[in-house]
Nucleic acid binder design. Structure first.
Lengths: 211, 211
DNA sequence: GAATTAATGTTTACAGCGTAAACATAGTAC
DNA sequence: GTACTATGTTTACGCTGTAAACATTAATTC
């Protein structure tokens, strides 16, 4: 084993992503990440000022990956109109990323990173991801001006982001039989939405765009 | 000063709420809470098994308060129809609570508490809050069945919850002048939504209910 | 009402954490 | 080759959550 690792920075990010997704950001330590990368417990400090800044790199990576999975649906090299199905698929790609990478999504949108302005790479990656979301709407429907696109985009983004959040709390609640023998309403409703996700999304997204 | 505090449990919850809202859940320690309550650093363990369980009490308290601020809008003693304005006011009450109690909202909906089933009081409080949200919709519009109410309710809840999340990240992003001299789009859009919140909510909520 | 027990405090102790400081080694520029 | 810089390691510190042992007060039993 060489004294100098050669690629420690990116290896640390990789290890951090893995451990974060496996255990959650609040359960991982810099020391644990260093151990996973087979270096001493303070080696990360040659590449990251603080734990927060390593997690910022994790978040930035997350935004890039999330954008990729949206861009895979709406071919970025083109500018033609997309169908409603393609639009919904793009939104589903957002949800799919968020749910399959739940713990990293938490780092991207949670309170771990206090201010994106301290991490320019992260800041850029987040804006880039937003722009992918926006261009999917731009190519679906013709609106008056950019401001109007942004308004719809914020509405849809909020809706998607909210669904991710509710999905998390669904997992923390329990089915409790109510007095009439049926089961717990909010969970039932969330499950129903998930089991019929495409029509659920179709109606919601369409409504928000036209609102 | 008495050896026995007399009301330490509720005093700890009170201190935890205060400190949490002031500094954020990830910046507060059991020791700090104990000091705030003027007891030894391990005294909380006579009332809470773990830090998580104290924070669960904070979250439960949050759900109760949130429900109260919704119920204040839609008088619970009545069952009559409510106007659209009242409905929107109830939704605004949700947002207002979430934003004025941002750090506690984070405890309620974040990853701090792993499973509500371990904290029956919290579990109940969360379901109660949901039921207030639902009854506001029930009294606004007549729908086919309970399932349909739940569907609309989930959509609206997701939207509200998502807006709270976006509001957080807006604060972490920076206004960066773009090439054409205008400012950063997602932030602009989020600010525009906040500055025109009532029409923004009117159109969105109406659209989701009818979707 | 005294003795016992349960509830609720304190003190002490420990391992794990983020990170600062001092030191070691390897690669780079002259 | 010598100096410098980048990137590793070792050691150390104060803070954390929490377990264990002990102290004090309140409640229960006789």
């Amino acid at each position: 084993m060489k004294y100098h690792h050669g690629n420690l920075r990116s290896e640390l990010i990789r290890c951090a992503c893995t451990l974060c997704e496996e255990h959650g950001h609040d359960k991982i330590s810099l020391r644990g990440i260093a151990k996973e990368a087979n270096v001493s417990q303070t080696a990360p400090y040659r590449h990251f000022e603080t734990k927060e800044s390593l997690l910022a790199a994790v978040a930035a990576h997350g935004f890039v990956e999330m954008q990729k999975s949206i861009d895979k649906i709406i071919d970025l090299s083109k500018t033609n109109k997309i169908s409603k199905k393609t639009l919904i698929d793009a939104m589903l790609a957002y949800l799919d990323f968020a749910i399959s990478n739940n713990n990293i999504y938490e780092v991207m949108f949670g309170t771990v990173i206090k201010d994106f302005r301290n991490f320019p790479d992260l800041h850029d990656a987040a804006l880039e991801a937003y722009s992918s979301l926006k261009s999917s709407i731009k190519r679906y429907i013709k609106l008056k001006n950019d401001q109007e696109y942004d308004e719809k985009c914020v509405k849809i983004w909020a809706f998607l982001h909210g669904l991710v959040g509710l999905n998390k709390i669904e997992q923390k609640l329990e089915d409790v039989p109510t007095t009439d023998g049926s089961y717990d309403m909010p969970i039932d409703a969330l499950r129903a939405a998930k089991n019929n996700l495409v029509p659920f999304m179709n109606s919601s997204i369409e409504a928000l765009i036209k609102s």
